[in-house]
Structures are given as C-alpha cells and as structure tokens.
Amino acid sequence: MTLDNQIKYGKLVPVMLCFFAMGFVDLVGIASNYVKADLDLSDAEANIFPSLVFFWFLIFSVPTGVLMNRIGRKRTVLLSLIVTFASLLLPLFGDSYGIMLCSFSLLGIGNALMQTSLNPLLSNIIAGDKLASSLTFGQFVKAIASFLAPYIAMWGATQAIPEFGMGWRVLFPVYMAVAVVAILWLGATPIEEEAPDKASGFSSCLKLLGSPFILLCFLGIMCHVGIDVGTNTTAPKILMERLGMPLDDAGFATSLYFIFRTLGCLSGAVILQKVASKPFLGISVACMLAAMVLLFVSTDLTVIYIAIALIGFGNSNVFSIVFSQALLAVPDKKNEISGLMIMGLFGGTVFPLLMGFASDAVGQSGAVAVMTAGVIYLIIYMFKLKR
C-alpha cells in the first residue's frame, strides 16, 4: 500500500465511525414501539416520534448546506456529533413523554446536520466514479448501528442488570459513548476540504429544485427514507397484529430489516464499482415491490420475514445511488445539493404520519399501502436515469 493510500484510509476510518454514529437515528423505530407500550399510545401518537425526528431535516438541511460554506464540512460534522451526544444524554434523566420528545428532536437535528455535511466530507477523500460505492459502504457502516439498536434495546428490556433501572433505554448510554469517541477521533484527523461553494444563500439552494432532475432526486430521497422509517416502525406491528407476538419478540423484525439492509450495502459497495446505477436500482425496486405484495397478502411468519428482508436488501442502495446522481449532476454546488437531498429525509416525517392514520383506520395493511406508493415512485425515477 502506498503512502498516499495509507493517508487516505487513515482519514477514512474516523469518517466511517461518523457514519456509524449517523445510524443512531434509526433507534427511533424500536424506541417508538417501546415508548408506545410504556405510555399506552395509539399508532398515530407513537408515530409522532419518528415523524418528529425527521421533521427537523426539513428545517435544518438547507441551512446546514449554507453553514458548511461558512465553517467547513468537518466542523459541521463535529457540531452534529455534539448535538447527537446531547440527545442521547437526555433519556438518562427519565422516560417521560416530554423528555423523549426533546431527545428525539435533538436526535433529528443532529442527524440533519450530520447527513448534510458527512456525505460531502467523504467526497473530499473519495472522488469521481468511486463516490457511489463509497457512499454505499458508509451506509453499510451506518446500517450496523441501525440493526444493533433493537438487540441492545431488547437486551436492556430482558437481560440488563436491574440496578441500572434503565430497561430498553440502556441503548442510549451505549451509543453516547461511541459518539464521544467519534468526536475526539474526527477532531484529531486533518482533512483538506474544497473551497466553499460560490452560491451560499438559502434562496439559491432552493432554486436548485427548479432543475427537473434535482427535483426527481429530492422526491426519490423522500420515498427512500419513508420506506426505511416506515418498515423500521411498522414491521414489529405487523407481527403483533397478525400473529399476536409480544413486542420483545416482534422487535426482531426491525433487526432483520437492518441485517439485510447491511448485507445489501456491503454487496452494493462492490457491485456499484462494476455495474451501472440504473440496472442495479431496477433490481432494488423490484425486490421492494415483491415484498409489498407479500406483506399485503400473507399472515405466515416466514413469508413476512422474507418480505421484510427483501425491503431491507432492496432499499439499501437507493440513497447512495440517488444522492451520488444529484452530486454528479451539479458538481460545483455539492454543499447546496447535499442540503437539498438531506432535506428530502423529511419523508421520514410524512410517511410515518400517513401510515399511522392509515393503520389506525384499516390495520397495518394501510401502512403497507402508503409504503407501496413510495416504491412505485422509485420505479418511475429509475426509468429517468441515463445510466
């Protein structure tokens, strides 16, 4: 390995640890189910938590793109990690409705800052046609944190030392410790950044949505994260509704989703170096469409697990493909494009709210119908790609 490669990978490791910290946001899926049980909430009320987390992407993503032009990408990532640390600290002081609302709000704000700044920061280390596969590898690392969250919560709920008195909330201090390591390691790592984008105003960022392709990418991100958060939140509820499973057992469905999403990211990081984005996205959305059909018609545990696995695998590379396509479309405005694309994570607010109302009205099949609409859009988006 050459000296340049050693330096590159030395910088890549702390950045990938930040991708792991980015995955902390996905604890909201299993956490909302436990909060629902603790506080006896309805589906619509419980789905406020994931919706609240992703609401802040609408508010903070574009301003973060502007902020990066002022203070730099690395400093913005460090700020996001500090906010994430604060969000994980709050639940140690109680589990009331108000505390959890504040915690999830800070988690959403920190993640909006992180997702907006971390992806373009990676482009300072890995550039060109390797960017999509590198972003996918980052999503693989992120997914590890995502699928570990339900296991840590279930361990806390069933096996943790009673003297801790934390139950499932033990996952907060575990992830908080990782956030501290990420802050210290990235802070000590020198990363040379590109010059700030020329356009640095809020309105100039939003004007980029006037480009038809950028708008398509924005809506594609909304659908991707809507399906992601929707499956994360709804998979255990489907098992509880149709098979009468207790939450501690049904929570495995969330882990299963993230296990296959992790496998999909890992394989995608390799495949996308050799296969064009369009055919690979076609395979991904085909997996998700098949899964939605299975979730509509089946009450069999194995079939439901297969459907959840297909969604995890199919949805694993959508973000990386859409995000990289947007960055490559307007390469001179990466900060602004990043802000816009991460604002699309607001889909994580829209989808759970619609799914909550639909499931309260007609059961979990209503929630599946909302996710299916997102899959159909991604099929349309796939045909708009050139390659």
Rank of each mutant, 00 (worst) to 15 (best):
I191Y: 08
G165F: 09
K130I: 01
V174Y: 01
G165A: 11
F140T: 15
I144N: 04
F147Q: 07
L148V: 11
P190L: 14
S133L: 11
N119I: 13
W168S: 12
D129K: 15
E193V: 10
A145P: 00
V181M: 12
G128I: 11
L118G: 01
Q159H: 10
I191R: 09
G167V: 06
V180G: 07
W185C: 05
L121P: 00
A179S: 14
M166H: 08
I183L: 15
E194G: 14
I161G: 01
P150D: 06
G156V: 04
L184H: 04
V180D: 06
P162L: 12
E194H: 14
A195N: 09
T158R: 03
P190G: 13
S134L: 01
V181C: 12
G187N: 10
F140M: 11
F172C: 15
Q159A: 13
E194F: 10
A177V: 15
K130S: 15
G167Y: 03
M154K: 10
A145R: 00
A179W: 00
G165Y: 06
I191E: 09
S134D: 04
A143Y: 00
E194W: 04
Y151F: 15
P162N: 13
Y151I: 13
P120S: 05
A188Q: 12
V174D: 03
A157M: 06
E163C: 02
M154V: 11
E163T: 14
V178G: 03
I126R: 08
I125Y: 01
N124P: 00
N119L: 06
M176H: 05
E194A: 15
A149P: 12
Y175T: 02
I144P: 03
A143W: 00
I125S: 06
P150H: 06
K142N: 15
F172W: 07
E193W: 08
T158P: 00
R169A: 13
P196L: 13
K142W: 07
G128P: 07
P173G: 13
V180A: 11
W185Q: 06
G156A: 13
A153H: 02
A127F: 12
S134Q: 02
F147H: 07
L122D: 05
A153S: 12
A177L: 14
I191H: 08
A188C: 12
P196D: 12
W155K: 07
L186T: 05
Y175E: 10
F140H: 04
F147S: 10
G165K: 10
W168D: 11
L131V: 07
R169H: 06
A188W: 11
